[in-house]
Amino acid sequence: MSDMTNQDGRVRPGQGPLGHAEIDESITSRTETSGWQAIVRTQPFWVLMAILVIGLVMTFVSDVFLTERNLFNTTRNFAFFGIMALGMSAVICTAGIDLSVGSLMGLAGVVTGLVMQAGYGIVPGFLACMGVCVLVGLINGVLIAYLRMAPFVVTLGMLAMARSVSMVISNNKMIYDFGPDTELYLWLGGESVLGIPNPVWVLIILTAVFGWVWRYSTWGRWVIAIGGNAKAARLAGIPVERILVSVYVLSAVTAGLAAFLLVGWFGSVTNALGTGYELNVIAATVIGGANLMGGVVYALGAPIGAALMELIRNSLLLAGIDALWQQFFVGLFLIIAVLLEQIRNRGKSD
């Protein structure tokens, strides 16, 4: 390689089409971006802007939009997707995918219902729900991390199997009797504290926890490192397989948590619970800034992505547009989000 000397006498390697002045300039412009500037560069920020704009437009289009009732319902609806998107963000950060979350909701919901219907109370019901999810997450994770199977295939298989098991154990019947703790359960899922629906509280707390985890925990750092360069992470001594398993367990657990709260809100559960939710959750995660290639994660992206999707649904409803258009707009925003991400990345790479 030929080395050349530039004006100030220092030597830099010849680097193709870029002149030295340009290289120097681009190096000095690479100062650390901090605070406000860094936030403005992230996708969640722009999605939040989109939400505010749509919200603003909606206040003119419909006088129902800003009512307490509507906002209450909208926030509660997106809370379930937001909670799951937090777990999905971790999976997608490792360049994986979890298609089983929707079916797992059905399985977890039915298991919760069966345990509580049998009169065991809410704590055993919750533990059973979590237990099933941890088990499913472990199976997904072990197959993907240790047997090196493609996440898409493993979780697609699990999607079919979990749904099937929930059909078998529910005997295809609806469960609406939750035993002695029915009242408490319905309160948990359907009521509010300080005017904020309980599932939204769960989402807020979890988002804060994940915000901390992604920034300050070793586990979070390692998940991001694996998404960036799994080979390098392994060479650095990070237990890549164990971390991958934990990520799928986490995704399953967030699905279980969402199912638990959703059943409490509905006051009943069938084995169809969560059908098709995986698509919405993945869409919310990607709209919230996750990159399917891995290595990117924002805690705030999950609720913001989920919020945009629910806002679209709500806006169409209030604007009197046929609800059948809903998935169209979800898909449209998903594609736009990925497109914008691609355009920004193209600008970054030289």
Binding site: T218, R221, W222, I224, A225, G227, G228, N229, K231, A232, A233, L235, A236, G237, I238, G295, V296
Partner: peptide, 22 residues
């Protein structure tokens, strides 16, 4: 020091230096 360096592009220099022994 590996020939292909073994760095995570999406992390800061400091994060890479301390990777695995934070």
């Amino acid at each position: 020091v590996y020939q292909d360096l073994g760095l995570c592009d999406n992390l800061s220099a400091a994060a890479n230096v301390f990777l695995g022994r934070e």
